[in-house]
Design a protein around this nucleic acid. Structure first.
Length: 475
RNA sequence: GGUCCGGUGGCCGAGUGGUCAGGCACAGGUCUGCAAAACCUGCUACGGCGGUUCAAUUCCGCCCCGGACCUCCA
């Protein structure tokens, strides 16, 4: 696949050709979770989106280092500890493990590095010292503050001037700030709150400095891609960018900034006050299919657009996966046509090169599925081949192999098809019922055969009579 | 108030200055003991008003509607 990837850069608000700083080693940083509570479905979106991008980059380039941090020092964590009595370290360790489990259920691969804020205090202090030395930060009443006016390009990422930001801002300005827009790099800790020794006394870092420190440690002063939710663009990413550029004196922090859109639920903004907050663990408990179905549901919308999550949409995504796995379950081993298989897979994946157009890639996956169905079950491929303008041979196994290859980049359809369709439990009784029904059919006792089928249907088992006998799957 | 992003057929959702998205749902059909699955066919939309153009859903302007962000929410 030719590495001709274009991405929408939030910094320039245009689609740009992706040119790695080092083509032999692409580097990407994505803001990870603050570990104080179970992940909700909104947390899942950037994980899924950037997992797809990571898989794509690995296909395009020889090496990728994908870094996603864990924020384990934060006032929300402190508050949770104060109200529950559980030690901070226990909360963060447990929540991190929960996060890992949930993300694995989404079929998201772990990042190459997962630095933690509490283990990155030294580089944070080093960065703050650089900023003070360069005149971009100052000490005031035990705090260290970043001087926004010292960085002329502040506001470029979020597209607003400091004056504009303050015009409608609903905040109180701390009296020790020289400028209302200045933000905290280091702050003193009240009793009972985690504190580390620093040149400015015992205290803790501000929110944004951790990502500047961790990306620096893991990827260097300048790297290729920085990602995260759109809500992080301001102030978090704006401040990160200011810190890193000012500390290192570089013309940029990352070449391309990517931001995924926000989530709504059944048309409404997801919020705790509306009571429509969906905890990922709860969604996953609906069945083994739920994680992958959520992945499909999310990839059906372009990553930059806001996504309206609906339960009906999740069901539709599951149904689509059922169809995919049905096709895969009957696919024969592919013929030895690696070049053609790669061509078909590349065709399906080509939309990803255009700013990660997953909805179109999913459409093409469906076309590959149809081609395989035509080859293995019967029918005509002329309609599909004509529409897509290809003259591929219709050979059993070929499109299925290309499908698997392409789906793998989307992180889909890696499960065993039979396990997916049958649920993986002990189901010898179903086979027995099918045998009984077969006997009834042979005796032309169709009333009994239909009775058995209805009985199974009531238990969520669907029978399908085919040329090779009767198969079944869960509804 | 400021900044920004969107409005595509019953629903979801790509894309394009002029020939087709696709899926779901629905309706026919092939196949089947009946079904299911699979395949085929039908369903022809681009918020409103102007403008540019031979031609606009696609470009420009205005308006309406929805959404996001505006100091610690992915």
């Amino acid at each position: 696949m030719t590495p001709d990837l274009h991405l929408h850069n939030s910094l320039t608000r245009t689609k740009e050709r992706f040119v790695p700083i080092d083509p032999a080693h692409v580097r990407m940083y994505v803001c990870g979770p603050t570990v104080y509570d179970l992940a909700h479905i909104g947390n899942a979106r950037p994980v899924i989106v950037f997992d797809v991008l990571a898989r794509l980059l690995r296909r395009l380039y020889p090496r990728l280092t994908y870094v996603r941090n864990i924020t384990d020092v934060d006032d929300k964590i402190n508050a949770r500890a104060a109200e529950s009595g559980e030690p901070i370290a226990a909360i963060t360790a447990r929540t991190t493990a929960d996060f890992h489990r949930d993300m694995a259920a989404l079929n998201a691969l772990p990042p190459d590095a997962e630095p933690r804020a509490t283990q990155s205090i030294a580089p944070m202090i080093a960065l703050i010292e650089k900023l003070i030395a360069r005149g971009h930060a100052y000490v005031a009443e035990g705090h260290v503050l970043f001087s926004v006016p010292s960085f002329g390009e502040y506001g470029a990422l979020s597209g607003r001037s400091p004056e504009e930001m303050l015009a409608g801002a609903r905040i109180d300005v701390a009296p020790y700030k020289r400028d209302a827009g200045d933000f905290v790099l280091w702050k003193p800790s009240p009793p009972g709150v985690p504190a580390w020794d620093s040149p400015w006394g015992k205290g803790r870092p501000g929110w944004h400095i951790e990502c500047s420190a961790m990306s620096w440690q893991a990827l260097g002063e300048v790297f290729d891609i920085h990602g995260g939710g759109h809500d992080l663009m301001f102030p978090h990413h704006e401040n990160e960018l200011a810190q890193s550029r000012c500390a290192f004196g570089t013309p940029r922090m990352a070449s391309i900034w990517l931001h995924n859109g926000m989530l709504r639920v059944e048309g409404e903004k997801m919020s705790k006050s509306l009571g429509n907050f969906i905890v990922l663990r709860e969604l996953l408990s609906r069945g083994a299919w739920a994680g992958e179905a959520l992945r499909v549901a999310m990839l059906r919308t372009h990553y930059r657009a806001d996504l309206d999550f609906t339960w009906a949409g999740l069901e539709e995504a599951k149904a689509e996966l059922d169809d995919h796995y049905s096709m895969l379950s009957r696919a024969v081993p592919p013929p030895e046509q690696p070049a053609l298989q790669a061509e078909m897979a590349d065709w399906a994946l080509a939309p990803l090169l255009d700013d990660i157009n997953t909805p179109l890639a999913l459409t093409r996956l469906r076309d590959l599925r149809t081609l395989e169905n035509v080859a293995s079950v019967g029918g005509s491929a002329t309609a599909v081949l004509g529409r897509i303008g290809r003259g591929w041979p219709v050979v059993p196994g070929l499109a299925a192999a290309a499908f698997r290859e392409a789906a793998g980049v989307l992180g889909l359809c890696a499960a065993d098809p039979v396990a997916w369709l049958k649920g993986g439990e002990d189901t010898a009784w179903v086979d027995q019922a099918i045998a009984d029904r077969l006997a009834a059919r042979k005796a032309r006792n169709f009333a009994e055969a239909d009775r058995i089928r209805d009985e199974l249907k009531a238990k969520g088992i669907l029978l399908e009579d085919g040329p090779q006998g009767t198969t079944w799957r869960r509804a």
